[in-house]
Design a protein around this nucleic acid. Structure first.
Lengths: 252, 252
DNA sequence: CGCAATATTGACCACTCTCAATGAGGGTGG
DNA sequence: CCACCCTCATTGAGAGTGGTCAATATTGCG
């Protein structure tokens, strides 16, 4: 496997080899003893490879998963063989929260590139959280954040057009890389055009055309999975529809 | 105000005048003492009227809300005056879960018809849940359910066409009425066509045309806000796309 | 009673999808 | 090591779903 083109997050290992789960996903309000207790119940899995599944839809729910390195996509398979990509998960992000209610996973999770993932046995976690109020509260926050994020996606799918969706996607990735200490301007995509399109409710061809167009407009440079954002402000302008429509009026 | 046409859930009062919050939204695993403690911190608000807001986007988050009677819509206002409708909430449903993380509401909540709503002071609730493990676990489940629901909506907006979206919407409403003891075949919509369209990512005109078409096809009868589902199975068939495409092949 | 908001219907058109062909890698096996 | 294959990506042409605009009910409300 060629690390230069496919692996985009492998080197985060350097950044987080010394870190524990807390700095990844539960950063606030826990004292060191609590952190120790939490770390005791967490299992580190062996490295996973592209195409491996963390879990499949309708699997019994036993663990929450935290991406440590690499990236994971979650998707909901539907009857006719298709799927809806629900999210791409970078290091520090928690996977499996939608399974708590029914005790059964509602989506599948597939590894996009060589990745390391932690498993949190949920029943043990619940016991622990009942004795550590701040852990419990932090869990509420994480669940709440997931809801907020999904609601933003609802607005994206319900209201935005193709170019706005892709601009939003790229800016969101950029921001997430930045907050993980990577360049927000220069990164590799670990997912295919098809998966991006699926996630954004667009056809593959539309994604491809938009990349070409954005490049022609000097917003970014794209070469296969390698993306360089040249004009981030330009991408932001795409999201501010009003401003764009005013520009259009001036032209006409 | 004309109760016959606009008020669709007023009479649920009869059904739940004697019930408490527990049977509405936290039905499982709590013993009577815990229920008592929970009920102590819950405030019942005076009746609210069409157009009243429970909260506005960016308001400080203090309470979770439970619809007791009536119906409420949540929506995310965007810069240019538009909005994305995020959900329609019937009796027993919890509102405000997306605000926990940041302590500030991410969406607004507006009452669609005369309604009664309970307020749960979140900080008191958190304290209580830290002493009642089953309450805490139930809260995890409610948050998880919300995530699952939002993910289903993502699949709807990302993959389904207009008629599938409306069929899904009507069947979902029907199901929710049924589980609340109302007729799943005959009900009144408390939201406008515009709001339905907004929620489903479609234009008002498309909703209007689809209602007409569904009526012409004998699937339902519609007269303003009054809906009668005549052929529920037919609506289900719309959702099973494969079957429809097979039918199409037979015709061609 | 009259105005404003909501709903319906039609005509037109734009955005994005579908279908199809071609090209570019990357992996595998001879 | 190269040939082959398969997947992924790009690009073009045409079509269709659903949006926009506009006109006309219909209803609700002050």
């Amino acid at each position: 496997m060629n690390d230069r083109t496919v692996i985009s997050f492998e080197n985060i290992k350097i950044a987080c080899s010394g870190c524990n789960l807390v700095t990844l996903c539960l950063p606030m309000g826990l004292d060191p003893d609590d952190v120790e207790q939490l770390n005791k119940i967490i299992k580190r899995s062996r490295p996973l490879h592209r195409g491996d599944h963390l879990f499949m839809e309708s699997d019994r729910f036993n663990y929450l998963y935290v991406v440590k390195t690499g990236s994971v996509k979650t998707y909901a398979p539907n009857e006719d063989g298709g799927e809806q990509v629900l999210g791409f998960h970078l290091p520090g992000e928690l996977i499996g929260l939608d399974a708590i209610e029914e005790g059964r996973h509602h989506c599948s999770a597939k590894v996009l590139e060589t990745s390391a993932v932690c498993e949190i046995p949920f029943s043990q976690f619940v016991e622990l959280s009942s004795t550590i109020p701040s852990l419990q509260h932090q869990m509420y926050r994480l669940l709440s954040r997931e809801i907020s994020h999904d609601e933003e996606m609802l607005a994206l799918l319900g209201k935005k057009n193709a170019e706005e969706r892709l601009a939003d996607f790229l800016l969101s990735l950029s921001q997430r890389f930045k907050s993980r200490g990577f360049s927000p301007f220069d990164f590799y995509l670990s997912m295919s055009r098809h998966e991006i399109g699926n996630y954004l409710g667009l056809a593959v061809e539309t994604i491809s055309r938009l990349f070409t167009r954005f490049q022609d407009e000097g917003l970014l440079k794209v070469e296969r999975k390698h993306i360089q954002l040249v004009n981030i402000e330009g991408l932001h302008v795409i999201l501010r529809r009003e401003q764009r429509e005013e520009n259009r009026r001036q032209i006409t």
